[in-house]
C-alpha cells in the first residue's frame, strides 16, 4: 500500500499529525494515515509498544530499519576480530568460551535481521547492502585484534559499552526490537564477564601477560567510548529517536555512565585507564573523561580505519563462496515441494 499519497478528491487535512513527520516534506495524509498517526502518537504517549502490523510513520520505519540493520551488521562483522583468535586460544577452556561467544554473535545477528524483516525489508537485501559496502556497522570492529588480551578488552570494554547502549533498548517502542534486545543483553552480560575474567587472569599473570593486558586496555579505551556516537550537540539522529521512545538516553549520558563503570572495575583489575581526566563531577553527579579524537572516528567511519577493507572482504567472500550452497538448498526445497504436490495430486485422484 502506498503511504503518504494524497487520494484524489480528498481535501488536505488542516493539521498534519505532529509526531514523526516533523522532518518529512509537507505531505497530505489519507484518512487511514491520519487515524494511523493518531493511534501511533497515542502508543508513543503511553510509552507502549508499536507492533509490526500497526500503522507507523515512514520516517519511523526507515529509522528503525537503519538502526536495527546496522546493529545486525555489527554483530556479524563483529564476529571477525574475535574469530581471529579461536584457533590460537591459549587454553581449551578459553577456546570453548570464545567459540560460544562468537557463535552467540551470529545468533544475535539472526534475531536482529528477523526483527528488521518485520519492517518489510528482507535479510537478502540487508546482506547485499552490507557486502556492497553501502551499509554501516559499528566502527569499532575496524580495529585489529593483535594479541590475546584483545579478547579480554573487547569483552570487558566493547561488550560493556554495548550493554550500556542496549539495556535501555529493551524498552524501545518497537516491540520486536525491544524483545530481541532482552535476549541479546542476557548473552552480552556473559560476554562481558568472560572478557573481564580474561583480563583479570592476565593482570595477575606474568609481567609479559600483565603488559599485554594493559596495552589492550590502552588501545580499546577511546574507541569503546566513541561507540556511543558523537557528542549530543553533534548527533543528528538522536533527538528524533528519543522522541519516538527508541533511544532513552543521550550519547553523552550513556558514555558518562560507561566511564564510571570502567573507572571502578579497572581498580579490581589492577590496571589503569589511559585517560588522566577521568573523574566523578560532584556538582553534575556525572563521570567525566578526557577529549576524544573525533577526527579519527570520522576517518574510520568513512572507511579509512585499519581493517575496514579486510572486514568487508571477508564478509563478501563468505557470502559469495556460499552462494552455491544457498542455491542448492533452495533448489532441493523446490524439488521436494514439487514432489509433495505431485504425490498429493496422485492421492487425490
Amino acid at each position: 500500500m502506498a503511504r503518504n499519497v494524497q487520494p484524489a478528491g480528498q481535501p488536505a487535512p488542516q493539521n498534519p499529525a505532529s509526531n514523526g513527520t516533523a522532518q518529512a516534506p509537507a505531505v497530505v495524509l489519507s484518512p487511514e494515515d491520519i487515524a494511523g498517526q493518531e493511534n501511533f502518537d497515542a502508543i508513543i504517549a503511553k510509552d507502549s509498544r508499536v507492533e509490526p502490523k500497526d500503522w507507523m510513520p515512514e520516517a519511523y520505519r526507515r529509522s528503525l530499519v537503519r538502526q536495527i540493520s546496522q546493529h545486525a551488521h555489527s554483530e556479524i562483522i563483529g564476529m571477525q576480530p574475535e574469530a581471529n583468535w579461536i584457533t590460537r586460544a591459549p587454553s581449551l577452556k578459553r577456546k570453548s568460551i570464545l567459540m560460544a561467544k562468537v557463535q552467540d554473535e551470529a545468533g544475535h545477528g539472526l534475531y536482529l535481521y528477523s526483527a528488521a524483516e518485520t519492517l518489510g525489508t528482507t535479510r537478502d537485501d540487508m546482506m547485499d547492502a552490507l557486502v556492497a559496502g553501502k551499509a554501516r556497522y559499528s566502527s569499532i570492529f575496524n580495529y585489529p585484534t593483535v594479541t590475546w588480551a584483545d579478547m579480554g578488552a573487547i569483552g570487558w570494554m566493547v561488550d560493556g559499552a554495548a550493554i550500556c547502549n542496549q539495556v535501555p533498548l529493551c524498552r524501545a517502542s518497537y516491540g520486536p526490537y525491544g524483545r530481541a534486545m532482552v535476549r541479546v543483553c542476557k548473552e552480552e552480560s556473559f560476554h562481558q564477564r568472560q572478557g573481564f575474567e580474561i583480563l583479570l587472569e592476565l593482570a595477575n599473570g606474568t609481567p609479559e601477560q600483565r603488559e599485554m593486558a594493559q596495552n589492550a586496555v590502552n588501545r580499546w579505551y577511546a574507541p569503546s567510548l566513541m561507540m556511543f556516537g558523537p557528542p549530543d550537540d553533534n548527533s543528528p539522529n538522536s533527538k528524533q529517536s528519543m522522541a519516538w521512545n527508541i533511544k532513552r538516553f543521550s550519547n553523552d549520558e550513556l558514555r558518562s555512565r560507561f566511564v564510571g563503570m570502567l573507572a571502578e572495575q579497572v581498580k579490581v583489575l589492577g590496571l589503569t585507564l589511559p585517560d588522566d581526566e577521568v573523574r566523578f563531577n560532584e556538582d553534575t553527579k556525572k563521570w567525566e573523561h578526557g577529549p576524544l579524537d573525533w577526527a579519527e572516528f570520522k576517518e574510520v567511519l568513512a572507511g579509512r580505519g585499519p581493517c575496514n577493507a579486510q572486514r568487508l572482504e571477508r564478509r563478501r567472500s563468505a557470502h559469495e563462496d556460499g552462494a552455491w550452497v544457498r542455491e542448492a538448498a533452495a533448489a532441493y526445497a523446490a524439488k521436494q515441494a514439487a514432489k509433495q504436490s505431485t504425490n498429493a495430486q496422485k492421492a487425490a485422484a
Binding site: I76, M79, Q80, A83, I86, T87, K95, M99, V102, Q103, A106, G107, G109, L110, Y113, R314, S317, A318, D321, G322, A323, W324, V325, R326, A329
Partner: peptide, 14 residues
C-alpha cells in the same frame, strides 16, 4: 572452528 564467521549462511555459522 575455522568456519565460524566464514559459513555460507548465518545459520551454518551457528
Amino acid at each position: 572452528g575455522h568456519w565460524i564467521s566464514r559459513a555460507p549462511e548465518l545459520e551454518e555459522d551457528v
